[in-house]
Measured scan of single mutants.
Amino acid sequence: SEEWVEIALRLLELGREANINGTILNLHKEEIEELIRRLLKRI
Rank of each mutant, 00 (worst) to 15 (best):
L39D: 00
I20E: 05
L14P: 01
E3W: 15
H28M: 14
N26A: 13
L11S: 00
T23I: 12
H28V: 11
A8R: 02
N21W: 15
N19E: 07
G22Q: 11
A18M: 10
L25G: 08
W4F: 07
I7Y: 03
E31D: 07
I20P: 02
G15W: 15
I32D: 00
V5M: 13
L40K: 00
L35G: 02
H28D: 03
E3V: 11
L9T: 03
L35I: 03
I32C: 11
E2H: 14
I20H: 02
E33H: 10
E17G: 09
G15S: 08
L40I: 08
A18V: 12
L12A: 03
E2S: 12
K29N: 11
E30K: 08
A8L: 14
I32W: 12
A18C: 15
E34A: 03
R16E: 03
E6D: 10
R10Q: 04
G15Q: 08
E30N: 05
L12C: 11
E31S: 02
R16S: 08
L35K: 02
L27Q: 11
R37K: 08
I24T: 09
G22S: 09
G22D: 10
R42F: 15
K29H: 13
L12I: 06
I36D: 00
E2V: 12
R38G: 05
N26I: 15
S1R: 12
R38H: 05
I32T: 03
L12W: 11
E33F: 06
L25F: 06
I24E: 10
I20K: 14
K29V: 13
K29F: 15
S1E: 07
I32P: 00
N26R: 04
A18N: 06
R38F: 12
K41P: 07
A8D: 00
H28N: 09
L12Q: 04
I7S: 03
N19P: 02
E2L: 14
A8M: 15
I32A: 02
E33M: 14
E34G: 08
E31Q: 08
S1W: 14
R38N: 06
E30M: 08
L9Q: 02
E30H: 08
R38W: 13
W4R: 01
L35Q: 03
E17Y: 08
L25H: 05
E34W: 11
I36K: 00
I36Y: 05
I7N: 01
E31C: 15
R10V: 15
E13W: 12
I24Y: 03
I43N: 02
E3K: 10
I7P: 00
E2Q: 12
A18Y: 13
N19L: 15
A8S: 07
N26K: 02
K29L: 15
L9K: 01
E6G: 05
I43H: 05
K29R: 07
T23G: 11
G22H: 09
L25D: 10
N19S: 14
I24S: 10
I32S: 01
I36A: 02
A8F: 13
I7F: 04
R16Y: 12
L14V: 03
N21R: 11
G22A: 11
W4D: 01
L9R: 09
L40T: 02
K29C: 08
I7M: 03
E33D: 10
L25W: 06
E13Q: 04
L12R: 01
L12V: 04
L40F: 05
E30R: 11
R37H: 10
L27Y: 10
I36P: 00
L39Q: 00
L14W: 05
S1G: 10
L9F: 06
L40V: 08
R37A: 04
N26T: 06
S1Y: 13
E30I: 12
W4V: 06
L27S: 12
K41E: 10
G22K: 04
E3T: 11
R38S: 05
K29M: 15
R37P: 00
I24R: 06
R42P: 09
R10D: 06
E33W: 14
I7A: 03
I43Q: 02
L35D: 01
L25A: 06
I24A: 07
I43L: 12
L11R: 00
I7V: 05
L35V: 04
I24P: 14
R42K: 14
E6H: 12
I24H: 07
L35C: 15
E31M: 10
E30V: 07
I32F: 08
I36C: 09
K29W: 15
L9S: 03
K29Y: 14
G22M: 12
E13H: 07
S1H: 11
L9P: 00
I20A: 09
R16D: 04
